[in-house]
């Protein structure tokens, strides 16, 4: 990560400090994201403790196969993202670009799997509302949280994919050099979205097979 990799902007005194500042900034932002999801997980915890029986019944209907497949996909994507970072540090341009594209593709694959899962859920009548398939009524709470959690996560992932694609286009066109501050920031964000998914996986899919 050479110093010439990034343009020095106001108000930073030097490149090193600017890079450090950007990482600091994204970490602060990730803290706010944790609280954002934290409110959602708290909601899950409270409702599960109020309705243990309904949550047991409801979580049996989730599909562990889709969930596990997606977990593997996302974990692999994080690995590739880290590889991209390392390879960029060694200045292997083509490989770094490939890694970024693989990362974005794995993200897309996740969304595709998610899409199949959603259509399965819909056909099983698992969208809360008047035609909801399960009893008692509080099973709807679980499925309400299922949809909200996964959709909010998918939106985050979509943003992540957009950022990775944008970064690889800039690198491919040589607008920015390898190993910019932006790539460090984006990779931190990507890993964060991955960690959120692991929590969602534990809350949504695993109770059903326990």
């Amino acid at each position: 990560m050479s110093d010439s990799a990034t343009i020095l902007r106001e108000p930073w005194p030097n490149i090193e400090r600017q890079r450090y500042g950007a990482a600091f900034g994204i970490w602060i932002f990730l803290v706010t994201e944790m609280l954002f999801f934290g409110a959602l997980f708290l909601n899950y915890a409270v409702n599960r403790s109020l309705h243990p029986e309904a949550f047991r019944i409801a979580s049996h209907e989730t599909d562990i196969v889709y969930g596990t497949a997606n977990t593997l996909i996302l974990l692999t994507s994080s690995l590739v993202m880290t590889l991209a970072e390392r390879v960029a540090a060694a200045n292997w341009r083509r490989l770094a670009l490939t890694c970024l594209i693989v990362t974005a593709s794995l993200g897309l694959a996740f969304l595709v799997v998610k899409g199949f899962e959603y259509s399965d859920d819909l056909s099983k009548g698992l969208l809360p509302g008047p035609n909801f398939a399960l009893e008692p009524p509080s099973t709807q709470l679980f499925w309400g949280l299922y949809w909200i959690m996964t959709v909010v996560h998918a939106i985050h992932l979509t943003v992540g994919i957009g950022l990775v694609v944008w970064l690889s286009v800039l690198i491919a066109r040589r607008v920015v050099p390898l190993g910019t501050t932006a790539s460090e920031v984006i990779s931190l964000y990507w890993h964060f979205v991955d960690v959120i998914w692991l929590t969602v996986y534990a809350l949504i899919y695993l109770p059903g097979v326990a």
Binding site: L50, H51, P136
Partner: peptide, 18 residues
Amino acid sequence: LLNKHIPAGYPPVMPHFQ
């Protein structure tokens, strides 16, 4: 209304009256 709590030792057979 919700058939929320099942007391120990009874099967969950009661319908809810929501």
